[in-house]
Design a protein around this nucleic acid. Structure first.
Lengths: 189, 189, 189, 189
DNA sequence: CTCTAATCGAGACGGTACGTCGCGTCTTACG
DNA sequence: CGTAAGACGCGACGTACCGTCTCGATTAGAG
């Protein structure tokens, strides 16, 4: 019986356009702040008509989400399980290595001007993950932990990526462990 | 002629215009994101001609600085000396109390949508203060400490102000101490 | 093989589509100006895919022609022979009666907003007929006579159709005779 | 007492912009149909920002009105008094001479593609003038007379202007008299 | 009663023009 | 002078249609 593909395949043209837009955004965001980038520029750079942008994304930010959401989700998947893990430093190392492996993308996302949008996206993702794991110092409110962890993560990674290659990934992981995990796990002295 | 006043007295109209603009910005920023506020709206709300804005500030951000810079500087003056102080919890309490005493202003600055602009301003101020005090764990790079501390401060205060009155200032100070100071002073276990 | 039908029978689907489009145009043109009607609207109203329109007509105007051309041609065939006829009033009456017999169509064409397009079509048709008959006052240039007659015809008919039933066809014919034929046949006093 | 000018003088810049736009429209309408002219083209040609257009006119048609209304009014002022005058031929001659004196403008208005808009404007103006004078054959309804006269006037003038200089103004006046006035004054034979 | 090719719906696409918005500059006239 | 009022050049915005172009999925009508 040929049920062939029960899942409706997306129109190939749609895939192509979306991919072109994503790539164009990444190209552009490396050179100037995300907010300074025009939707027309993105579409010109992507080689699509500018109306095509709106057929796929309501907003510049929506495209950024589409570009970043997957990466962010991957990253969070590495970063958040720490609440159950014992050796936080390993989690930090995994996180840092993941970012390093996609250095170009994350540089664009964090240092390219899209930072504040990505920040919101990360906090949002953290919020979705959160609530399940509570191995932190229980006197710190969960939502504050989420905000703090997300922001601390961003700051350390941003700082690290801006440093180029002057800090190796082990040291970065150590710093991340110290600034992000240490305060939410250890009690104040 | 009494040169006894080295500071040129500003034209009264100038003072009035500036004050009207500052007040207008504070009014507006409570209701929607700073970036979404139009210069025309500010001037309309202030009851001045819109060209008048440009005679005093080159930019929306410049007006925000004028509104916030003093407050931020005051806050940092309380917050940063901790690097020399012994009892960081006292510093946190002073910081939290200072913000509480200007709750409306700080709510506007942090939760009103100006957050990212203020964030940049705080980091900038921290940078200026920095370099002088190094009582932190010396293996954490100074510039990372500055970024981290500024951001952690912002996050805790933002979280606290959004909670309304459900968290008292002592607890807030404790959380601030735990999340901001603890990791940059204590060595990782 | 029965060549008795020289005209190739059109695919039934083609007939259906064309008819749906013609009907849709007539529906729409009653409510707003022809120029303001979108091809997408016509196709939606006709219940066909919008690309189907282009498979049959190159242009909105081409569809209008298809709707109107035959009628216009019939009308002109009645109206123009007058140049040879002796009793112009009879021709006028025939013309008016013909329009009356197709009142809904002609109302749509003349008062529905397609007027200027139809006007051009009529003048064009008049031009094709023209040149053959010259029983008019010979000092009036032929091409001016054509323009004038076509336009005068349109105006009288439009006026008449807009009046609803308040003017009977005999009076309309009399007015048409007076305004269209009288000046081009009789010499100025 | 210097009440100076009780009438608020229009800002000089406004006058300049409007004039530039009017001139630009006249330039452009000579080369292609009015409907095919873009508002951006008008503003580019006028050397003003395209938004400036909308500060003065809601619509392309509104600009055309502003250009044409005065001329049309002047023309009607010559043409309509005929209903009281005895020698219609003199009125025709005056009309034709007036158009001749502004040949470039009227060519643009009538043959440039703006024709249908101008036609509506003329009929409107005729309607305003109308109702006062009834020296026409009383059995022809007033509103039909207005429509007819306006259209006949347009047709004759359009035809004449398209002929270049091959028809002198006396002959044109004679034709206008014959086609426009003759049928509405003289009874049918 | 098939089989094949014409026709269709659906809708993505590259374009062009639209009319709106906010910017920051500049002009005019007032106090 | 500093101001209000507001016109202006600029340029991005998001929308609306255009006419072209795949795609499968009918569906006529010839064999």
């Amino acid at each position: 019986m040929t049920d062939s593909l029960p899942i409706r395949r997306e129109d190939a043209r749609v895939q192509r356009s979306r991919q072109a837009l994503r790539a164009a955004l990444l190209d552009l965001v490396e050179h100037r702040p995300f907010e300074a980038i025009t939707i027309r520029e993105i579409t010109d750079c992507a080689g699509v008509g500018h109306a095509t942008f709106y057929r796929h994304y309501p907003t510049k930010g929506a495209l950024l989400d589409d570009v970043a959401a997957g990466q962010i989700r991957d990253l969070m998947a590495l970063s958040l399980p720490v609440f159950q893990a014992r050796s936080t430093i390993d989690v930090c190392l995994a996180t840092v290595r993941h970012v390093e492996a996609h250095r170009r993308l994350w540089s664009a996302l964090l240092t390219g001007g899209a930072a504040s949008a990505v920040r919101a996206e990360i906090i949002q993702t953290a919020r979705e993950y959160g609530g399940e794991h509570h191995p932190t110092a229980e006197w710190i409110p969960t939502d504050l932990v989420q905000r703090f962890a997300a922001t601390a993560l961003m700051e350390v990674l941003t700082w690290w990526l801006e440093r180029g290659d002057t800090v190796n990934s082990e040291d970065a992981a150590k710093l991340l462990n110290q600034l992000m995990f240490f305060p939410i796990i250890n009690p104040a002295s």
